[in-house]
């Protein structure tokens, strides 16, 4: 059951439901690609569906002093706007990018939390999913930079001022590496954190079978502890991903260099 959380199989609920097979399959650059429903895709669709329902509910009961779910969502959105966006970039830019940051935050959070439900799957524990999320963040960061400095200005910014001419080509390569390393780090961090929690629980439960009944109590106790820790990590990783995306946008749109 735990391994199902870590794998991406074309079936659901411990292979009880088989998802419809690949709709499209083709070869590109020597790699065979099959596009179809898998466990993680279903989980992401579920997360998106839940978020749409949440949005409709919040929108319908809009009020000056929100109650219930509206209150909860407002607290998160205000936190993202004031503590993440406004803290890392000028106020005018912060409002522009708050919607993107909120979308990222809620999607990652719901995916992480869905991964903690028994028979579920952690979509954010799949490198392909986190890579796509990081790619979206990468596009947004580049867009923010180009919007602020202009396309040419953005590429000129790759060579820091005051660098001797013979160092300029090397600096372009070094800066370009930084540009790609940022989303790479985002992607690996989210993936590793979501995978690690599940792997630790799996190892703890596995100890019972290795050692015998003596390990039952400590293993289950530690497993529950790690599970509680994972609920915290689900929030923390969503926050860190959003925060760092915001910091990277902020570095490019800041008024002073």
């Amino acid at each position: 059951m735990i391994t199902d959380h870590l794998q991406d199989t074309p079936s659901l609920f411990g292979h009880a439901i088989h998802l419809p097979g690949p709709f499209l399959s083709f070869d590109i650059l020597g790699i065979h690609v099959e596009i179809g429903l898998t466990q993680n895709v279903v989980m992401m669709l579920m997360a998106a569906f839940l978020l749409i329902i949440m949005g409709i509910l919040v929108r319908r009961r809009i009020a000056l002093v929100p109650k219930g779910i509206g209150n909860l969502v407002e607290a998160f959105v205000l936190f993202i706007r004031d503590e993440i966006a406004a803290a890392t970039m000028p106020a005018r830019e912060a409002f522009r990018y708050t919607s993107f940051l909120c979308t990222t935050f809620f999607f990652i959070l719901v995916c992480n939390l869905l991964g903690l439900i028994p028979y579920g799957a952690t979509a954010t524990g799949n490198l392909a999913v986190t890579a796509s999320l990081a790619f979206a963040a990468f596009l947004m960061i580049q867009y923010a930079g180009m919007r602020k400095m202009g396309v040419l200005g953005y590429f000129r910014h790759l060579v820091p001022p005051g660098v001797p001419w013979w160092l300029a080509p090397l600096m372009v390569v070094v800066e370009l590496m930084g540009v790609f390393a940022k989303p790479f780090a985002l992607c690996v961090r989210l993936f590793a954190n979501m995978l690690a929690g599940h792997a630790v629980i799996l190892s703890l439960i596995g100890l019972i079978f290795l050692v015998g009944w003596l390990m039952v109590v400590p293993s289950v106790a530690f497993g529950v502890f790690i599970y509680c820790l994972e609920i915290f990590v689900a929030f923390l990783q969503a926050y860190i991903f959003t925060m760092l995306t915001s910091v990277f946008i902020g570095l490019l749109v800041a008024d002073t260099h």
């Binding site: 890392t88 940022k182 780090a185 860190i240 910091v247």
Partner: peptide, 12 residues
Amino acid sequence: GPYLNLGAMLAA
């Protein structure tokens, strides 16, 4: 916040 990425950036 800004320091969270230091180690990961170096590795990346």
